[in-house]
Amino acid sequence: MSYYESKDVRKFGKISDWQKTLGDKFFSWYGEVFKSSALSAKEKSIIALAVSHAVQCPYCIDAYTEDALKKGYTEEQMMEAVHVAGAIRGGATMVHGVQMMNKAQKLSM
């Protein structure tokens, strides 16, 4: 048995069992977020896929990979979304090089 069991995602709704008020509000809000509005449900799906990789949530990666296939994204588009997530994560690391440089310059004679 691994720490993340794919079957466990079916138990997601049970988080409301221990805190119903907040759980119900979360799921209501979650459902609303993914409806078509200023962004379409399809656009939100590929954003969710990219973010799933950025936060490295196994359940989210499974769920939004399937959702992207359902919504008609090609494999190439899906991989580009993952590259976007990777670029932001990589960029976030590299841009902190500026902080390193600032600090090093301040400390140095």
Binding site: E66, L69, K70
Partner: peptide, 17 residues
């Protein structure tokens, strides 16, 4: 029909695509 083990998305949205 889906090319795999997943359900179809909304029919109207698929038709538009």
């Amino acid at each position: 029909n889906p090319s795999g083990a997943f359900l179809p998305d909304n029919q109207e949205n698929l038709e538009v695509s």
